[in-house]
Design a protein around this nucleic acid. Structure first.
Length: 263
DNA sequence: CCCAAGTCCTGGTTGC
DNA sequence: TGCAACCAGGACTTGG
């Protein structure tokens, strides 16, 4: 979430009002045809982990970075890196400024698609409220017996929480990741929501998590990896109680937590 | 060989 | 029994 939000902000600053020119979609995105050429970027929004580029002529470019996706804005003459799946020239018709926009994704979990504005499908139509929205998360999920970590990862509960944020949030809230949703006290749910906003704010302020692949649109790194309390720290000691941090699988994802502090 | 990630898909189980 | 709702786990992908 934090990483996508940072990219959204940078795209709005760098390429809002630019027009697509000379689009070269990679093999995977062959449905991105020449109809993108000539469309102007009006505004970039975000919903969960999806980037939504509102374009002229009532079109929208929807981008999901998957796990290893990078969206880079660079100079025309700069060589494109390996695993570039989509490349286009962006031109500001007023100032004459020109950039390249690249979508780079070694693991190819990311997706780019061009649609009519507002015509969403798949997960995008069923996302829960944003982390910073005043709307309550989808409480129905909390009546399930699923472990709370699985509920946080579920984009229908709250949109935008990925694996590392969930671990950091549950540590901050002192809740065990394997606690069934239907055992959570309302005050514990409030704690989790408050921690989600706190941790997400912190990750944003630190420029996002560059644990493996994330870079901002300049290609430079974020710093949140230097502020993690549990994620990636299995076997090391808890900063609160000095006990060794444990690791388990929840919903198929590696989960790190403190068995002493989190109940 | 195994692991990491987010989402989609499949097939199985539960509950009314 | 019928059928929807729910849920677990695999597939996808490639570098370390």
């Amino acid at each position: 979430m934090a990483e996508v939000e940072i990219i959204r902000t940078e795209l709005n600053r760098k390429i809002a009002s630019f027009t697509f020119d000379a689009v070269e979609p990679g093999l995977r995105y062959s449905h991105l045809d020449e109809s993108l050429t000539g469309l102007q970027i009006q505004h970039v929004n975000r919903r969960g982990k999806f980037l939504l580029l509102y374009l002229s002529n009532d079109h929208e470019l929807i981008i999901h970075l998957g796990m290893t996706g990078q969206l880079l804005v660079s100079d025309l003459e700069k060589a494109s890196p390996k695993h570039t799946h989509f490349e286009s020239v962006l031109r500001n018709l007023t100032t004459g400024a020109v950039f390249k926009l690249l979508f780079v994704d070694p693991r190819r979990f990311g997706k780019v698609s061009l649609t009519k504005a507002g015509v969403y499908k798949g997960l995008l139509t069923r996302l829960g409220p944003e982390i910073f929205s005043k709307d309550h998360p989808t409480q129905a999920l909390l009546r399930s017996k699923k472990p709370v970590k699985a509920i946080l990862l579920d984009q229908h509960f709250m949109a935008g929480l990925g694996n590392y944020l969930c671990d950091e949030i549950l540590f901050d809230a002192n809740i065990s990741p394997s606690r069934p949703g239907n055992t959570l006290h309302p005050s514990e749910i409030e704690r989790i929501v408050a921690s989600a906003r706190k941790i997400a704010t912190n990750a944003l302020e630190k420029g996002g998590l560059s644990f493996s692949d994330y870079v901002n649109t300049d290609g430079t790194l974020g710093h949140f990896q230097n502020h993690l309390k549990v994620y990636g720290r299995q076997g090391q000691s808890c900063y609160t109680c000095s006990q060794s941090l444990a690791t388990i699988k929840v919903a198929g994802r590696t989960t790190v937590f403190c068995g002493t502090c989190q109940r």
